[in-house]
Design a protein around this nucleic acid. Structure first.
Lengths: 235, 235
DNA sequence: CATTCGATGGCACTCAGTACCCCAGACTAT
DNA sequence: ATAGTCTGGGGTACTGAGTGCCATCGAATG
């Protein structure tokens, strides 16, 4: 009875009705009354399931956002935060890739309805804020931790969106996972601690409990901290 | 000249009326009729000057966006694109910093009205798109130019917003230009080694002195950072 | 003086979103 | 069983944003 196939809940009926009417008449030309009528419910019930007309276009983003924050919170403390947020981005992508038909349909809609584009922005922003919040905590012991967190979160989201949009433009034909992996790899390369030129040398090879760091004055603080951290790490 | 005093006073009156009423009654409790009535014009005229109620909160963003795109287009081809977009971000910041009272007032408003936050997001997005479009062109000869452009544009915007928000939170008391310079410097440094164009900033930091730090393993990070910071400080 | 044009006000309309009340069915206490 | 009440949906009326249409007024122009 719980998973009866002959009883689609009202919520699903509303989503189905909306995505039947939107491609036919267009988003603006479809009223909430039309959707409710086609779904066989009263207009009032629509707003019981969706706080606004726009929300029916993103029916399960609330759950997805909750999933992502839970995923971030469940991360072990010794995991590289950069890896963790990249994995979180992959999690979101999977939500799109698991239902390509629906995702492409929605993409076409949002592409040509300014109001939906704006709404989608606010949705994406919440993901970005969740990432930034997580990173602020993980970067708490670094200078400029909020700035670092905001910029990295924005970078990850931008890379994710770049790959996702490319995949959506191809009608969901290509390999979404590979595309997002490539994009995230780009971000990871510019952020991962690679021993570059001019960085302070860290004599961490000695097995005793002392680390000696030699840094030149006016070395960027992030380089110093980065190398200290890797030198202090127990691995 | 085109910038003569013959500007429509109605528009300014509407903005003044809106920003008088919003703090009094709140944004949602202020109707467009109220604003128009206080400005001494008909309700219909409000929508002649502003396409929506939200637009009156960002009266000159359209001009600002045009300024920024023009600034990007006017850049010489031999200039480092990273520097150019950073300079463009500074341009936008100046628009806020030039009128601190208005900017702080608007910040307080957008902070507590979800609809305005969403609208501001769409505004910021247009700046980011303009930056990304410019960078796509400048990165045309590199692999992943679109990805590189999107991520860098997002980073610059995130850094700019981080600095701007900090300044706005302090009621416009601190040095906004210095804050955004610091934030943009962070972005520039994480991108300079990767862009590898021999940016002018890289050679300028010719270290002349050396500092040695000795730390024990598992020392709290904040302690290490504090000592390093004071040792590296140029005083 | 008549005309055209641009800017404005007024009116009426659609539609999203909300407040309030009603109704039907299910479950429970007596 | 009868009454109480809890829940989920329906219906009505209202507010307010945004739009289309037309009348008006004033200035520039013939």
């Amino acid at each position: 009875m719980t998973t009866g196939p002959a009883k689609p809940p009202i919520r699903d009926a509303l989503v189905a009705a909306a995505f039947q009417l939107f491609p036919e008449r267009g988003y603006d030309q479809t009223t909430v009354d039309d959707i409710a009528a086609l779904a066989g419910v009263g207009r009032r019930s629509f707003f019981r399931y969706f706080p606004s007309k726009e929300d029916v276009v993103f029916p399960d983003h609330e759950r997805s956002l909750a999933d992502m924050t839970a995923f971030l919170a469940a991360g072990p403390d010794d995991e590289d935060p950069v890896e963790r947020v990249c994995e979180a981005a992959r999690l979101v992508l999977r939500l799109y890739a698991d239902d390509p038909v629906f995702s492409v349909q929605r993409y076409r809609l949002t592409k040509q309805v300014p109001g939906l584009r704006t709404y989608e922005l606010s949705v994406v922003r919440r993901y970005e804020s969740a990432l930034a919040h997580y990173l602020r905590g993980r970067f708490a012991d670094r200078p400029d931790n909020a700035l670092r967190a905001d910029v990295l979160a924005a970078s990850v989201v931008a890379a994710h969106n770049n790959a996702l949009r490319g995949w959506l433009r191809s009608d969901g034909e290509g390999d979404a996972a590979a595309a997002v992996d490539h994009a995230l790899d780009f971000v990871r390369r510019t952020w991962s601690p690679d021993t570059g030129d001019g960085s302070p040398g860290a004599a961490a090879t000695e097995p005793d409990d002392v680390v000696v760091v030699i840094a030149k004055r006016r070395t960027p603080m992030w380089r110093v901290v980065r190398d200290i951290e890797s030198a202090l790490a127990d691995d």
